[in-house]
Design a protein around this nucleic acid. Structure first.
Length: 195
DNA sequence: TTCAGGATGTACT
DNA sequence: GTACATCCTGAAC
């Protein structure tokens, strides 16, 4: 189905976070296509959210990307070794984004994703590996070969984008976001969504 | 199956 | 120097 255009991202961040569920992350690397159905997201909204890197419109070299136009990728390094992929939302100048937390393999690229993650075909994954395949932001980035070179890149281009599958999730769950205990009242916002 | 602890680099006090 | 939108390993149960 169709690639999502900029207007999809140019909306309220909570809405975008919910509507990304069930859509497909697409990553083209050296002519091969990697796909994953998005199953978990979180919203971060700078104007009111102490958990957001750009809380209260704080501008630093790192957060500059959050002020970019909607439909831009925001990628940063966390804990010294893991990358996190976000989709910038809302109007240019409004620092807000959706964090991609988890996907499931789509199409027939499970083998390629397993090789990127564990160096073996999907068939040879241990049960533990199968249950912890793409269920975290750093894991998704590793399997899809996404690093900081994608920070600021355009999600309406040809190497990293989202496609509409035309399918609606049967049910969307919501809860508190992960790993932001420092964020005072914002830690209790129900801005995490999953299928 | 769960849990504690360590890895590791960048941003910003 | 400290904190960080995390993940992996190994040991205990």
């Amino acid at each position: 189905m169709g690639k999502l255009d900029r207007s999809f991202y140019d909306r309220d961040t909570i809405t975008v976070a919910r509507e990304l569920l069930g859509k497909e992350l697409v990553r083209v690397v050296d002519g091969t296509v990697l796909r994953g159905v998005i199953t978990e997201t979180e919203a971060y909204i700078g104007r009111m959210d102490k958990a957001c890197h750009a809380y209260n419109y704080k501008r630093t070299p790192r957060t500059e990307t959050l002020f970019a136009p909607p439909g831009t990728a925001y990628v940063y390094l966390i804990y010294g070794m893991h990358h996190c992929l976000n989709f910038v939302t809302e109007a240019q100048g409004e620092p807000a984004a959706v964090l991609l937390r988890a996907v499931e393999p789509a199409g027939d690229c499970a083998d390629l994703l397993a090789r990127n993650r564990f160096g073996c075909p999907a068939q040879e994954m241990t049960p533990y590996q199968r249950n912890n395949f793409l269920n975290g932001p750093g894991k998704v980035c590793k399997a899809f070969h996404i690093d900081r070179s994608f920070n600021g890149s355009d999600l309406t281009g040809g190497v990293l984008y989202i496609e509409d599958t035309g399918r609606e999730p049967a049910r969307i769950y919501e809860g508190k976001r992960i790993g932001i205990d420092y964020a005072q009242e914002a830690k209790d916002f129900l801005w995490r969504f999953w299928i």
